[in-house]
Amino acid sequence: MEAPATIDVISEHNKKKQRRARINKIILYIALALLSILTLIPFFWMLSASFKTNNDVFTVPIQWIPKTWHPENYSIIWKQIPLATFFKNTIVLSVVITFIQLLTSSFAAYGFSKMHFKGRDTLFLMYIGTIAVPWQSYMIPQFIMMRHLHLTDTLMSLVLLQAFNAFGVFLMKQYYTSIPDELCESARIDGLTEWGIYRRIILPLTKPAIVSLTIITFVNTWNDYMGPFVYLSSTENKTLQLGLKMFVGLYDTQYAYIMAASVLSILPVAIVFLVLQKYFVEGIATSGMKN
C-alpha cells in the first residue's frame, strides 16, 4: 500500500521539477531573443534605411519596413563615389596581406616550435616583446621609414607593415606546440626532411589553425581603419573604410545612400564570418588564453 504512494510522490516531484525546468528554458529563450534583437537593432535600422528615400530615413515612428522600396540606392552609390576602386583596393590588401602572413608565419612557427637551434628562444622573445607594444607607439618611426622609401600613399606600404605580424607567428606556434614532438622525431628517423615534415605532417594536422589565422587576418585587414587612414591619402588608393568615411564627409545628408554603402562594406566580411565563424571563435579563444 505504501510503496505506490511514495512512487506517486516522487513522480509528482519529478513532474514539478520538469515543469520548472521547462519554464526556466522558456524564460531563457525569451531573454536571449530580446537581447539579441537589441544587439542587432543598429543593423536592422541600417538595412531598412538603405532601401528608403532620404526623407523617409528619420520618420516618427520608425518605419522598420520601408513604405516604398528603393533598391536603386545600391546602384546609384557606385556612381557617386569610386566604390569599385575602394572595393578593389580593400580586396587586394586583404588577400595579399593574409596570404603573406599565413605563409611566412606558419613557416616561422614551425622553426620556433619543432626545431632546435642556438638563439631560438632569444629570437622568439623579440616577437613576444613586440606584441606587448601598441602599434600606435611605433607608428611614427614606421611612417618616417616609409617616407624615406617613397612608399607613403601606396598599398605596398600597408602590405609591408602588416604582413609580418608577430601575432600570426604567435598564434601558429600555439597550435604547433600542441602536436607531440615524437611525431616529428619518428618522421625524422624515417628519413623525412624538415620541409617534408612540415608539409606532410604539421600542415595537415593544423588546418583549423590555418583557417583561424586566415579569417582573423582577413577580417582585421578588411576592417582596418587607422593604418589606411595614416598612409593612404589619394582617392585612387583609398580602401572601403576610408571611402565610406569620405562619402559621409561629402554627402552627409544623403542618409539612405550612406546606409546602402555601409551595408555593402559590411556584407563581404559578414559572409566570410558566418561561413567560417567556428574557426574565428576558436582562434580568439586560443590566442586569448595565451597565458
Binding site: T39, V57, N223, Q241, V248, V263, S265, V269
Partner: peptide
Amino acid sequence: FRTAFFFPYVTSLVAIAVVWNM
C-alpha cells in the same frame, strides 16, 4: 545567439560608427 552578440565585433568600424551617429 552567440553569432548575434559577436556580430558587432566583426563588422566594419566606419559603418557602425556612421549608423550609430544617425
